[in-house]
Amino acid sequence: MAGDRVVAPSAEEVLALKGRSVGPSDWLVVEQDRVDGYARAADDWHWAHNDVERASRGPFGGPIGHAHLTLALVPHLFASLVGFAEGEDAMFYGYNRVRFPTAVPVGSAIRMRADVVDVVDLGGGEQLTVDLTIEIDGVERPACVAQALFRHYPVKAPD
């Protein structure tokens, strides 16, 4: 793994994540198969994503990943950076803000860095406010900057 994964197995350790920076994650290549799979799931068949020939004549010189595909990868990337007690996970709660400064060309690799800006005790769980930056390998501007909310509940997933 590119960065060290942080594990917070108790409520006290989750609360202590406030102010912590984690990452980067490992690189994840955004292949055309993944983009097409997202298009099938979201029924979003825009030519800039799924018509390789037409996209090669478009403004990006080839197909790009959907912006919402980038967002859909956030829970996976976050879980690679932050863990909880065995069998526990954080549930995605929402976004306060999201921007996509740079398109993700198909075939490029992305990774995520996260800054935990706040953690609030909900009484039975914690809410984490996390500033996220998704980078593209070799590109100066990020693919996505967002502030995400995750909720951790000390409950193991059922088998």
Rank of each mutant, 00 (worst) to 15 (best):
D51K: 11
A79W: 04
D51V: 10
L77H: 08
F60P: 08
L73Q: 12
A55C: 09
W47K: 02
S80A: 14
V52W: 05
D51G: 11
A41N: 04
W47P: 09
W47M: 04
D51Q: 12
L69A: 05
L69H: 12
L73I: 10
V74D: 08
D51R: 11
G62K: 02
V74I: 15
H49Y: 00
L69F: 09
G58S: 14
D44P: 06
L69Q: 13
D44W: 00
R54H: 11
A67D: 14
I64E: 07
F60G: 07
H66L: 01
H49A: 01
L73A: 10
H66C: 03
D44L: 00
D43K: 00
A72Y: 06
N50V: 15
L73Y: 11
L71A: 13
G65Y: 05
W45T: 01
A41G: 13
G61W: 03
V74L: 13
H76N: 07
A67M: 00
D51T: 11
A67S: 14
H66G: 00
A48T: 13
R54C: 07
A67G: 15
R57Y: 12
S56F: 09
S56I: 06
A42V: 00
W45M: 00
L69G: 08
G65P: 07
R54A: 14
A67E: 11
H76G: 11
A72R: 03
W47G: 07
A55P: 10
A67K: 01
N50K: 04
G62A: 05
P75W: 03
V74Q: 05
A67H: 04
H66S: 00
A72T: 11
N50P: 02
A72N: 08
A72M: 05
A48N: 10
E53T: 13
N50A: 12
H49V: 04
P63Q: 09
A48P: 00
H49E: 01
G58H: 09
S56D: 10
V52E: 15
L77V: 07
W45Y: 15
L77N: 08
H46Y: 03
N50I: 14
V74Y: 03
L69P: 07
G65C: 10
W45H: 13
D43A: 00
A48H: 10
V74A: 05
H68R: 07
V52N: 02
A42D: 02
A79M: 05
A79F: 02
H68W: 13
I64Y: 07
H76W: 08
E53G: 12
A55Q: 09
H46P: 00
G62L: 05
A48C: 08
D43Q: 01
D51M: 10
R54T: 12
A42K: 01
L73E: 12
L71V: 13
G62Y: 08
G61L: 04
V74W: 05
W45V: 02
L71W: 09
P59H: 11
A48M: 14
L73H: 09
G65A: 15
H46K: 03
L77F: 09
I64A: 06
